[in-house]
Design a binder for these strands. Structure first.
Lengths: 256, 256
DNA sequence: AAGCGGGTTGCATTTATTGCAACGCGGCGT
DNA sequence: ACGCCGCGTTGCAATAAATGCAACCCGCTT
C-alpha cells in the first residue's frame, strides 16, 4: 500500500510520480484510487488529473479510469530520434576503430535507404560522403536490415512487382530472390552483402531498435572487397554487437 | 521556433509546453534558448530544467543542451495501444507507396483529432510534420471517420450547439450539416474530404477497429488537390483496404 | 430513509513559482 | 591586459499557484 513513499519535493517530481502511479496500474486509476496511491486528498487528485486529461497526457475512459495517453507516445518517439542522433556517433566511432573501416547510420526513406550519419576511418581509400544520399533498398546491407521486421507481403509491395533494377550480377533480381537473402539475414541477426551494390564493395549491417523494439535505423560497415572480404564474418558480429549496444543505450539511463 | 501556444494555466500545462519546446528542437535547447522559447526569464528556465534532468525526463549533454530523456520511454512503453503502434507503420508505408502521398494515423482526443504517426518519403529528418498536433474534428477526413460509430446526439454534443469554426467555405457550418456528411461517409465505409480543412487540400480516411469492433484510430491520406483530387475515389478505396488490413492485424494473435 | 463511496467545488492557508537583480564564468574583439 | 557580451546560477520580495478541510451532488446498497 504505502509502496514508495518518497520525498517528492518539486512539483515536477510530484507530476512524474502521478504519471508513474498510473503507469504502474494495470487497468488505470480512478480519482479515489489515484488519491490513495499518492496519499493525498481526493480533491487534489481530481484537480491534478483534469488538466492532464485535457492536455492528452492522460486519457479518461468511460469507466472513469485514467490511463496514459497518446501524447506521451509522440514525446517518446521524438526522444528516440534525439537520442539516436546523440548516442550513435560514439558507438560508430568505436566500431570504426575496431573494424578500421567507415561506418554509416541509415534509415528507411520511402523505398530507399538514407544515410544520416557517417564516421570515418583512418583509411585513405574509402567511399566518399554518403550522408544525405539514398541507395536502393534491395542491394544494400542496410536495406536488408531495415526490412527485418517487415512481413513478406509488405516487402513484395515495397519492392514492386517488376524486376529489380540490378546494379551488379550479385544483386537479387527478383523480390523472391531478395526475400531468400532477407530470411538468411534474419536468422543471422545481421546482413552481409558481397558485391551487390557495387562489385568491389562488401558490407555488413545490423538493426538498431528503440524502446518498443521497432527498428529505427541500421548501422553498417562498408569497404572495398579486397580489404574487408576476408574478415567480413567477423565484422558482421562486430556490427551486430555495436547495434545491440546502441539499441540498449537509446532506452537506458546510463550511457558510455 | 518561438512559443506558439498561449494560455498555459496549470503547472502541468507549463511542464508539457516545456517538454514540447524541447521536443520540437532538433538538437536540444540550452537554458537561454529554452527561456526564449517560452518567453520567460532564464532563471525560470534554469530552475525548471534542473528537476526534470534529475528525474531523467530530460537529459543535459556536455554541451549544455537539453534533450528528451530515457524516462519518457518507461512511461510511453505503457501508453496507448502498443500493438497498433507496432503494426501500423508497415501498413502505412505500403499505402504511402500505393498512393504516392503522405499517410497519417490519428486518434480522437476530446473534440480534436490528434496525429500520432506519419509515414512518407521522409522519416525522421526534418520531421516537422503533423505528429503530436491536433486538427478540428469537423473538417477533416480523420475526424469524420473517428465519429463513425458515435450516435447523432453524441456528435451534436461533441461539436457544441454553436456554429462551427469554419476554415473554408467547403467545411460544414453546422452540426446538422456535419451529420449529413458523416452519414454519407458511413454508407461509403470511408470519408472523402475536398477543401474543407484547407481549400487546396483533399483527403481520404478510413477507420481502424480493434478486436471488439471499436474504432481506435483513423488512417488517412492527405495531399494537395491538384495532385490527388482526380483519383480521390480510388485512393479512398485503397485507404479503406489498408485500414481493414490493419484492423485485422491488430486483432489477430499470430504474428511473428 | 439513512448510510456509504466516488467525484467535484469553495475557500482560507500554505507553498511554490515568478521576475528582477546580482554574481561568476568563459569567449572575443579593440 | 582590458572591457564587453552572452550564458548559467542564485537571493529575495511579490505574486500566483497548490493544498486540505469542508460541503455538496450523485448513484448505489442496506
Amino acid at each position: 500500500m504505502h509502496g514508495m513513499s518518497e520525498g517528492a519535493r518539486s512539483t515536477a517530481a510530484r507530476l512524474l510520480a502521478a504519471l508513474e502511479a498510473i503507469s504502474n496500474s494495470r487497468d488505470g486509476l480512478t480519482v479515489a484510487e489515484f488519491a490513495r496511491a499518492l496519499g493525498r486528498d481526493k480533491s487534489i487528485a481530481s484537480r491534478q488529473l483534469r488538466p492532464l486529461v485535457d492536455l492528452g497526457v492522460l486519457e479518461r475512459g468511460p469507466d472513469g479510469r485514467h490511463r496514459l495517453g497518446w501524447r506521451l507516445f509522440t514525446l517518446a518517439a521524438r526522444a528516440g530520434d534525439q537520442r539516436l542522433l546523440l548516442l550513435a556517433p560514439p558507438v560508430m566511432r568505436r566500431l570504426s576503430d575496431l573494424s578500421g573501416e567507415r561506418v554509416h547510420l541509415s534509415v528507411l526513406h520511402g523505398r530507399e535507404v538514407l544515410t544520416i550519419l557517417s564516421e570515418s576511418s583512418r583509411q585513405m581509400i574509402e567511399a566518399v560522403d554518403w550522408v544525405g544520399r539514398t541507395a536502393p533498398v534491395h542491394c544494400t546491407s542496410s536495406g536488408r536490415v531495415l526490412l527485418f521486421d517487415h512481413r513478406d507481403d509488405d516487402v513484395r509491395c515495397l519492392l514492386g512487382d517488376e524486376r529489380l533494377a540490378v546494379r551488379s550480377s550479385a544483386a537479387p533480381a527478383t523480390a523472391e530472390d531478395f526475400l531468400r537473402r532477407l530470411c538468411e539475414a534474419r536468422k543471422l541477426g545481421y546482413a552481409l552483402v558481397d558485391g551487390e551494390f557495387d562489385v568491389d564493395l562488401v558490407a555488413a549491417a545490423a538493426p538498431v531498435r528503440d524502446f518498443s523494439g521497432r527498428i529505427v535505423a541500421s548501422i553498417n560497415v562498408s569497404a572495398p572487397a579486397y580489404r574487408l572480404k576476408e574478415r567480413l564474418w567477423h565484422t558482421g558480429r562486430q556490427v551486430a554487437s555495436a547495434a545491440a549496444h546502441l539499441s540498449k543505450a537509446i532506452s537506458s539511463q546510463a550511457d558510455h
